[in-house]
Computed example of a mutant assay.
Amino acid sequence: MRKIVAGLFMSLDGIVDAHEISPHEWTTDEMMERMGKGLGQADAVLFGSRTYALLERFWRHQSDDSPMANFLNRSTKYVVSSKLDRLDWQPATLIRGELIEEIAKLKSGPGRNIQIPGSPMLVRALLREGLLDELILNVVPVVVGSGARLFEDFAEPVRLRLERSTAFSNGVVSLTYRSVAPAAE
């Protein structure tokens, strides 16, 4: 079964959408090496529509000399959206309908891991539904104060197990969590 692996940059106070936590500003060569290993285990990308549009504008026109550009441009992209009618950044498939059913189909299909770069609302929904297998949080040493938080509106606890933590020279702490199945009652 395929795993869904999400990676996000987040401020110390849990904000995931602020300019101050831009991956371009905080990513180091050391972090890129680790990200490259993760990309090597994946063959597809899952996006929300906003993240798809944002990343398409930049990465679609980058040379495949960059491992990230090569991965994003060549991998199948699955885009969750009720608003988009077409996807110009190919290969790509639009996902509509019941999110839980569609993601479960993707996970049970053939292939390697599915990466989610960003897309905090999608990550939040998959966490809530128990469909996210691994969550990599790159916590940057800045307090933003306001903005969208990853962990909002959870009616039930979501249990995660810390698999790995790494402190990078720029102060970013990378935390890798795995989903933990709820305890049987």
Rank of each mutant, 00 (worst) to 15 (best):
F71A: 07
F71N: 05
L72E: 06
L72A: 14
R74K: 15
T76H: 11
Y78T: 07
V80Y: 03
S82E: 08
S82M: 10
K83T: 15
K83Q: 15
K83W: 08
L84S: 05
D85W: 00
D85A: 04
D85T: 12
D85K: 12
R86F: 02
L87S: 03
D88N: 09
P91N: 01
A92H: 11
L94Q: 06
I95A: 00
G97R: 00
E98L: 05
E98I: 01
L99H: 00
I100A: 10
I100M: 07
E101G: 08
E102R: 12
I103R: 00
A104W: 00
A104I: 06
A104H: 07
K105A: 12
K105Y: 03
K105H: 03
L106Y: 02
K107Q: 04
K107N: 01
S108H: 09
S108D: 12
S108Q: 13
G109E: 08
P110N: 07
P110Q: 08
G111I: 03
R112T: 10
N113D: 15
I114P: 06
Q115C: 14
Q115G: 11
I116V: 12
I116K: 02
P117I: 15
P117R: 15
P117E: 15
P117A: 15
G118D: 06
P120C: 07
P120F: 05
M121C: 10
M121Y: 12
M121R: 14
M121P: 07
M121A: 15
L122A: 02
V123C: 03
V123L: 04
A125C: 04
A125Q: 14
A125N: 05
L126I: 13
L127Q: 10
L127H: 03
R128I: 14
E129M: 08
E129W: 02
G130M: 06
G130R: 04
G130Q: 11
L131N: 09
L132K: 01
L132S: 06
L132H: 01
L132N: 02
D133G: 11
D133I: 07
D133Q: 10
D133H: 05
E134D: 11
E134Q: 15
L135R: 10
I136C: 14
L137K: 15
N138F: 13
V139D: 13
P141W: 01
V142S: 08
V143I: 15
G145K: 04
G145E: 10
G145R: 09
S146L: 11
S146C: 09
A148P: 00
R149N: 04
L150S: 10
L150Q: 11
F151W: 10
F151G: 14
E152T: 12
E152A: 13
D153C: 00
D153K: 07
D153G: 13
F154Q: 04
F154I: 06
F154D: 04
A155C: 02
P157D: 09
V158Q: 01
V158I: 13
V158N: 01
V158Y: 05
R159W: 14
L160E: 09
L160H: 09
L160R: 10
R161H: 12
R161A: 12
